[in-house]
C-alpha cells in the first residue's frame, strides 16, 4: 500500500471536515464568573506579594544589625569569658545578700 497516498488522503479528510465552532449555552457567563472569583482571590495574592516584597528589606535590616552587633563587640575589645559573666549575673543577688548580713 502507498503510505504517502494514504497520508495525503487522511490529511485531505481532516481539511474537508473542520471542527464545529459551536459554543455551549452561556459559556461567557462561566468565564466571567471565574474571572470574578479570581479577582476576589487577588486580595490574598496582593497580600502575599506585599509579604514577599517586604522579605528583602527585612533580610537587609537583619544583615545590617548583625554586622553592627559584631562590629560593636570588636570595639569593646575582648570581654570576660561568658561563663564568668553568667556566674556574676546569677550570683549578684547573693552577693548583695551577703553584704546586708
Amino acid at each position: 500500500m502507498n503510505i504517502v497516498e494514504l497520508q495525503k488522503k487522511l490529511l485531505s479528510v481532516a481539511r474537508a471536515n473542520s471542527p464545529s465552532d459551536g459554543v455551549p449555552y452561556a459559556f461567557e457567563k462561566r468565564i466571567m464568573a471565574r474571572i470574578a472569583s479570581e479577582q476576589l482571590m487577588d486580595v490574598w495574592a496582593l497580600w502575599g506579594r506585599l509579604l514577599w516584597r517586604a522579605a528583602a528589606p527585612c533580610v537587609g535590616i537583619m544583615l545590617v544589625m548583625g554586622v553592627w552587633a559584631v562590629a560593636s563587640l570588636d570595639l569593646n575589645g575582648p570581654s570576660q569569658p561568658l561563663a564568668s559573666d553568667l556566674e556574676e549575673t546569677v550570683l549578684a543577688p547573693l552577693a548583695s545578700l551577703e553584704d546586708s548580713w
Partner: peptide, 16 residues
C-alpha cells in the same frame, strides 16, 4: 470587566 465579556462572545466560536 463587562467589556471583556463582549470580547469573549466575539472570539469564543473561533477558540472553540
Amino acid at each position: 470587566a463587562a467589556s471583556f465579556e463582549v470580547l469573549v462572545k466575539r472570539y469564543q466560536p473561533r477558540i472553540f
